[in-house]
Computed example of a mutant assay.
Amino acid sequence: MADDEPVGNFEPGAHRREPRLVAELRVIGMVVRRELKKYLRSKAKILSSFVQPFFFLLIFGYGMRTLVRTTGGVSFEAFVFPGVIAMTVLGRSLLSAVTIVQDREFGFLREMLVSPASRVSIVLGAILGGALISTVQAVLLFLGAPIMGLFPGPGTILAVLAGTGLMAVEVTALGVALATFIAKPHSFTAVTQALTYPMLVLSGALVPLAGLPSWVGRIATFNLFTYPVDAIRRLLIGSNVRADQGALTGLVLFGHRMSVTDELALTGGCTLFFVLLAAWRFARVT
């Protein structure tokens, strides 16, 4: 059977002769489906992943607005909504990579590694599966947008979700890369928890970076999570909104004020780096 013949034939061994790209895409799809099935089987995890973000919306939106009416001409609810999206994505995406550590501990990873599947495909499937779940949770958060006084149009929602998806892939790839260095699930959980809070606080997700000490702002420029957070906020509330002191949105990197395109491009570059690092490290996992 030639390589370009349809794959739908059931001749014994035909799956081994299908084009390599099709075979690798099949492996990626299988790993993504596995991640989704594991998530959907845990009813408690699904419930908490839905309830927690809406709880944060109520706390940070309605609870804090009595103290902070506006932020640079934008309601605090509108400012914090992208931050809650980022909080949801960060927590879920990093923890999703614990699957790699668990599979290694219980021996399932070894079975995957001795299969004919490419290790790169296994890594990509794990990253895309975790990122997909995080992005779906962000989609559901938009159901609460009208409660926060936000009524984004379809184009804005699609743009924000595209940025959110890129952010989810970046953080999941970082998590998978970390998982290749750590052998025990509890150690991985401890490391991700230690990373989550600094990354979140220094990203400007919940408070404007312009209101923090200048040295904190300089540290925040090295937080790779800062740039997708700012990008999705600018896509949602406008890219030219400015606070009374400093910029409400927009970051300055080495004297250059970043545009939304710049921020997303930098996020894309970091994503590619983490994916390659995860694939390189995964190839050395035994």
Rank of each mutant, 00 (worst) to 15 (best):
M1W: 04
D4C: 01
E11Q: 06
H15D: 13
P19V: 03
G29W: 14
E35K: 02
L36D: 02
K45F: 13
V51K: 11
Q52W: 04
F56M: 15
F56L: 12
Y62S: 13
Y62I: 15
G63L: 09
M64V: 15
V74E: 14
F76I: 08
E77T: 14
F79N: 02
G83A: 01
G83Y: 00
I85Q: 07
M87K: 01
T88R: 02
V98H: 02
D103R: 04
F108S: 13
L124M: 14
G129I: 04
T135I: 13
Q137V: 00
V139L: 12
L141R: 11
L141K: 05
L143C: 15
A145G: 14
P146Q: 05
L150S: 08
F151Y: 08
G153I: 10
P154K: 09
L158S: 15
L158E: 12
A162H: 00
T172A: 13
L178S: 06
H186Y: 06
F188C: 14
P198C: 07
P198S: 04
L200W: 04
V201P: 06
L212G: 03
W215M: 11
G217D: 07
G217Y: 05
T221H: 08
N223M: 04
V229L: 05
V229M: 01
D230I: 08
R233D: 06
R234E: 06
R234I: 01
L236C: 01
I237E: 10
V241L: 14
G250H: 02
L251V: 14
V252A: 01
M258V: 06
T261E: 11
A265V: 15
G268S: 11
G269K: 07
C270P: 03
F274K: 09
W280P: 06
V285Y: 01
